[in-house]
């Protein structure tokens, strides 16, 4: 086949066009947020979490009862117009108790997750950055401690420190930082050999600046994903502890505590278990779904 010369045309090089930026420039976080928004399931999760948080704030104010007030003339009421979720054996309004319980459960989940993340990032960061003997020591310590089942450890601490919100948070932090420290250390070990760290060092950055300004911000994605996964597990553990009688004690309320006292009267008043159980499950579900979405959004390997 013959191809005539006329069929070709000289185009030349357009400098400006080839250098033009087609896609809008985005930071890592903008890009992550863009992809998170596309994930409908994760957004539903986020929506439910926000609703739960708002309800935990305004829920108790919507009824004229206080979560800890007994009303012995109105005990064991089934859900009705006056008491939307019914009352318990001492006549306490369950609507108020469920949402005060939400406050306690969500607060414990968030605080426990934040605290053990903070501890883990600090210790893991130092261990990974300085390396050598200190790193060896910390890692051997973690190896041994991590082999001790966390729940047993938490139960022991709870037994000694006593029940309540603060002891729960503390015992979570004590047992929870181990895996986070490992994770952060691994990340830091990878990062600290990279050129931008060398560049920062050359410019005279000191250790704390390197750790907190350069290394940790670059591991933030991994840390945040791990943090969101920890919140449901902390909420679950609180419910678990309260259920076996070690966590939050009445008249204070938490979802686990409500489920626990509900389980005792399951045959007669099933709603008393199923209402708090529903909220625990739906919150855990939303947090897990949101966490999954966040992981997909923050994973640089999935960037397109």
């Amino acid at each position: 086949m013959e191809i005539s010369k006329e069929k070709f045309r000289h185009v030349g090089i357009n400098e400006g066009e080839s250098q033009a930026i087609v896609r809008p420039s985005m930071t890592y976080w903008q890009d992550a947020w863009r992809r998170l928004k596309k994930n409908k399931i994760a957004m539903v999760g986020l929506f439910v979490i926000i609703i739960m948080t708002i309800m935990s704030i305004i829920g108790p104010m919507m009824v004229p009862y206080v979560h800890s007030d007994n009303d012995l003339s109105n005990t064991d009421q089934w859900p009705s117009k006056e008491h939307w979720f019914g009352t318990d054996d001492l006549g306490r309004d369950l609507w108020a108790r469920v949402w005060v319980g939400a406050r306690v459960s969500l607060f414990i989940g968030l605080m426990a997750a934040l605290l053990d993340t903070l501890l883990g990032v600090l210790i893991g960061g130092i261990s990974g950055y300085y390396g050598g003997k200190l790193d060896m020591l910390i890692m051997r310590f973690i190896d041994v401690m991590i082999a001790i089942p966390g729940m047993i450890f938490i139960i022991l601490i709870m037994v000694i420190v006593g029940s309540g919100v603060v002891p729960i948070i503390i015992s979570f932090a004590i047992t929870g930082w181990l895996s986070m420290a490992r994770l952060v250390r691994g990340q830091i070990l990878q990062l600290k050999e990279q050129e931008f760290v060398l560049a920062a060092k050359t410019l005279g950055a000191n250790s704390s600046r390197l750790i907190f300004r350069h290394l940790i911000p670059n591991t933030l994605g991994v840390i945040i994903v791990s943090l969101t996964m920890r919140i449901p597990s902390a909420i679950f553990t609180e419910a678990f502890l309260s259920f076996i009688g070690l966590g939050v004690k009445p008249p204070m309320s938490s979802w686990g505590q409500l489920a626990s006292s509900g389980a005792a009267v399951l045959r007669v008043y099933p709603y008393r278990l199923f209402i708090p159980a529903f909220f625990i499950s739906i919150t855990m579900l939303s947090l897990n779904l949101f966490g999954d979405g966040l992981r997909d959004a923050l994973d640089p390997r999935l960037r397109r």
Binding site: P232, A239, F240, L266, R267, A277, S281, M284, N288
Partner: peptide, 22 residues
Amino acid sequence: AVIGVSVPSFVVGALVQYLFGI
């Protein structure tokens, strides 16, 4: 799978106990 991860064992236990047992 997601439901299994999210619903605590004591809730599952109490629920099946109530439904199938009681």
